[in-house]
Design a protein around this nucleic acid. Structure first.
Length: 575
RNA sequence: GCGCCCUUAGCUCAGUUGGAUAGAGCAACGGUUUUCUAAACCGUGGGUCGGAGGUUCGAAUCCUUCAGGGCGCGCCA
């Protein structure tokens, strides 16, 4: 039950009714009329700006319009009183019976509360992580991974179908140097040959492990000639990498539905296919592009090449599809991959990209627009960098030195829950400070434990009355009367559907941990009131709990639980 | 040079997609435990929302412009 949406409709209906009766004039578009959460210092449950919006067209002051609307709204059985304030806000206070109805709704449909039922069910494909299959994941990959996972969860919460995909870049030059690195590590092991000192090779220790596994499982392979075995070796090495990557993802609590190979797309001539398709529609031509304006552009050789007209769709320059050796560029096969997504009949495609790929968004959305002939099929979401702070200092990762923190290190040191909660706690648009010492801290400084503690405290109440927090409760009579302190929390609970609505519309998971923190804070305050005031305690002297308190607690724990489920963080019953 | 992101309290950040006296946490100071979990709570101080214009009943939020910071710009992936 979304009370804001409910009253948004009611208020609009009342206004149109007033228009019909000739009392008031209304514009055609009522969309700027909002129902909002009033500021904390105002004693009301919801508020609307309707009078201010209608003031001009009626050439009356907002206060006068507000009085007219107020009179009409007071006919509503659930409203106890209405205050009109300064510029023209209409502040509405509900009768206790309305909160009863609200809570009854939550208790009887615990899995529906917050779900945005106004949306039509859609099929989403979300591509995320897609790190090169050249080794295990490191901390830098985590944020995007968690972001993608939670965006999926939010959409699923709203009953959409979500298909989670990982694009495996197992084609191209980087994979060749990765395979070569594995090759030389194999020679090192089998032929006792020293590993070459070559900047293009991967130095990481894990390559040795991969080489050992390959040798162990494929005793027949001879490592005398690279070209003879390169295809086979690539396949083996990539699959070893994917094993590592999948383990990393699992430890983060993430599971993709599909791993799509780039090589497979290229082998099936899908790149050829889309090039022809785009050619038919005149989106492709042979031409020259200018050297990039970057500092390292000295060795730029201008040449005639196959280009995609991404400038037709807002990109700054057209993009190359073919290299000078006639093989496809990364972009070309990615366009084919996106066509592959389109052909699988999804309504919307989502890509989660790292900040370093932000410049890529225009060209890839351009290609999707060209292929579908519509706009907005593909949504790209960027996750900004994570700044690692260790012992109060900025920790710089360097792949060349092999000096970086893997997901394995991270999870074993700080754990899945803290990692997920902290990584999600800021807008993805902003750089995030990830302070190892703080994230491990078990105190109020760490918002994860603050929220978990809220749930654990509620669990302890249930334990004390020999009930379980997860049990569905049956309340015969909904006839509660809550104090202002309790209504304050009920109001916070009523905002949960709003949080979901916005998080889902804008694909902004950070709103969930922030909201859960606020709700927990309200709860902890209330809990401590019990010290001075017996009425505020949940369990009374006879070791019993009133229906009021039971329903109240249950509604809080329901919301905390579903919020934590969405962000993929556990809710222990005791801490 | 161009594109994207950012600039809010000493520090780290929220701010319901234009609303009311701009909010949290940390840090500082002072208090709360014979009582459902103190991993908690309460109180005090702290602001020219980077600057300047504009749009309107109303701007941290939208537009223009300037300044500062980050990321990116390739026949790489």
């Amino acid at each position: 039950m979304n009370i804001f949406r409910l009253y948004s409709k009611k208020i609009r209906d009342n206004i149109t009714a007033l228009d019909k009766d000739g009392v008031i004039k209304t514009p055609k578009d009522l969309s700027s009329i909002n129902v909002d959460v009033p500021p904390e210092n105002i004693q009301s449950d919801i508020s609307t700006n309707a009078a201010m919006v209608l003031s001009k067209i009626n050439s009356k002051s907002p206060l006068v319009v507000a009085e007219i609307i107020k009179k009409k709204l007071l006919e509503d059985n659930d409203i106890s009183n209405i205050d009109i304030l300064k510029p023209g806000f209409i502040n509405i206070k509900f009768k206790p019976s309305f909160w009863n109805l609200f809570l009854e709704n939550i208790i009887n449909n615990p899995n529906e509360f917050g779900v945005d039922s106004s949306l039509t069910k859609k099929n989403f494909l979300i591509e995320f992580v897609s790190a090169n299959p050249t080794g295990p994941l490191h901390v830098g990959h985590c944020r995007g991974a968690i972001l993608g996972d939670v965006v999926s969860n939010i959409l699923k919460f709203n009953k959409h179908n979500v298909f989670k995909e990982y694009y495996v870049n197992d084609y191209g030059n980087q994979i060749i140097s990765f395979t070569k690195s594995v090759f030389f590590r194999c020679r090192e092991i089998v032929l006792k040959e020293t590993f070459p000192n070559d900047e293009n090779l991967y130095p990481g220790e894990y390559i040795i492990q991969i080489a050992q596994n390959i040798i162990k499982n494929n005793p027949k392979i001879k490592f005398d000639n690279f070209d003879n075995i390169s295809n086979q070796l690539t396949e083996l090495a990539v699959s070893e990498s994917l094993i590592l990557i999948k383990e990393n993802l699992k430890s983060l609590g993430i599971k993709h539905d599909n791993f799509q190979s780039e090589t497979e797309i290229v082998k099936n001539n899908e790149v050829q296919k889309i090039v022809e398709k785009l050619q038919k529609n005149n989106f492709i031509y042979k031409g020259r592009i200018n050297a990039p304006e970057s500092e390292k552009s000295d060795n730029w050789v201008e040449r005639e090449q196959l280009l995609f007209k991404s400038t037709d769709f807002g990109d700054d320059k057209d993009r190359a599809l073919q290299k000078s050796d006639n093989s496809w560029t990364y972009f070309a096969s990615d366009v084919a991959y996106h066509n592959h997504k389109i052909e699988r009949q999804f309504d919307t495609l989502i890509n989660i990209l790292g900040a370093d790929h932000a410049g890529y968004i225009k060209r890839i959305t351009a290609s999707v627009d060209a292929l579908t002939g519509e706009q907005g099929k593909l949504i790209c979401k960027v996750s900004q960098l994570v700044k690692l702070i260790k012992d109060g200092k900025l920790f710089k990762m360097s792949k060349r030195k092999g000096d970086y923190i893997t997901v394995e290190d991270l999870i074993s040191e700080v754990g899945k829950d803290a990692t997920r909660f902290i990584m999600l706690s800021r807008t993805s648009d902003v750089e995030l400070d990830f302070d190892f010492t703080k994230v491990k801290e078990k105190s109020k400084d760490n918002p994860l434990y603050y929220v978990q503690y809220c749930y654990a405290r509620i669990s302890s109440v249930f334990r004390n009355i020999n009930k379980k927090i997860n049990d569905q409760i049956n309340v015969e009579k909904y006839d509660f009367n809550y104090s202002e302190d309790e209504i304050k929390i009920l109001k916070k609970i009523s905002q949960w559907p709003l949080v979901i609505e916005i998080a889902s519309k804008k694909l902004e998971p950070h709103r969930i941990p922030n909201y859960l923190y606020e709700l927990s804070s309200d709860f902890h305050s209330y809990w401590n009131m019990g010290k001075d005031n017996e009425d505020k305690r949940f369990i009374n002297k006879d070791k019993k709990i009133s229906n009021d308190k039971l329903v109240f607690l249950k509604s809080i724990s329901n919301v905390v639980k579903s919020g934590m489920n969405i962000i993929g963080v556990d809710t222990p019953e005791s801490m």
